[in-house]
Simulated scan of single mutants.
Amino acid sequence: MRVRNRRTAAWSLEAALWSAAKASAHVLDRLHEWGYREADTAEAALTDLLVRTAVADGDRRVSVHHADQNRQALIVALSHQPGPAVADTRVLAELTSLGAVSCGTDTADDGRRVWAVLDL
């Protein structure tokens, strides 16, 4: 996965129940640092769902990658679990209901990615 020509941040966390809340706090802190003072519960809830989905894949760690561009944020959770991504339309529908303007899931050599883009 490549994200170019924009501000980015990334965190590696243990794949544990507490990881979703920690990741949400990291993303909100970074959004506020980047000047998006209005970022709050919607961004936190969306990050929480992405990370919980990655944790459920069963690996020992998850990575959260975050970028912004033109008042939109990209948030990606990577499970590092090899193999095909589990098709779960419920997760994509829930991401959309939380405000994602685009979202998806795919599998690469480095594991399953679950991602969402939202307007800020």
Rank of each mutant, 00 (worst) to 15 (best):
L74I: 10
C103F: 02
D29Q: 09
L98C: 12
T53W: 11
G83A: 05
P82E: 02
A44I: 00
Q81D: 01
A85Y: 08
C103Q: 14
R52S: 07
E43N: 03
P84I: 06
Q81A: 12
E94G: 05
L49F: 13
L46N: 09
E38I: 00
E38A: 01
H32W: 08
V27I: 11
D68T: 15
H66I: 13
E33M: 03
I75D: 06
A25P: 00
V101F: 11
R60M: 04
A73D: 04
L50E: 07
V64G: 06
A45L: 13
V91S: 11
H66C: 12
A25H: 04
H66P: 01
A54H: 03
Y36D: 02
A93Y: 13
L95V: 14
R90I: 12
L31A: 06
L50Y: 06
H65G: 03
R61V: 03
L50G: 04
A93Q: 15
S24T: 02
L74D: 07
L98R: 14
D48T: 14
T96S: 15
A77N: 02
S24G: 15
V55W: 05
V76D: 07
A39R: 00
R37N: 02
G58D: 06
Q69T: 10
L92Y: 11
A44G: 10
D68C: 12
R90H: 15
A73M: 14
L49H: 09
V62A: 05
R61Y: 10
P82I: 08
L78M: 04
P84L: 08
G35T: 04
L28Y: 01
G35N: 03
L28S: 00
A39H: 00
V64H: 02
D59E: 09
G83K: 05
R71N: 14
E33H: 07
Q81V: 11
A73R: 10
R37M: 00
G58V: 05
V101I: 15
T89H: 14
V27D: 08
V62L: 08
D59I: 00
V86A: 11
T53Q: 11
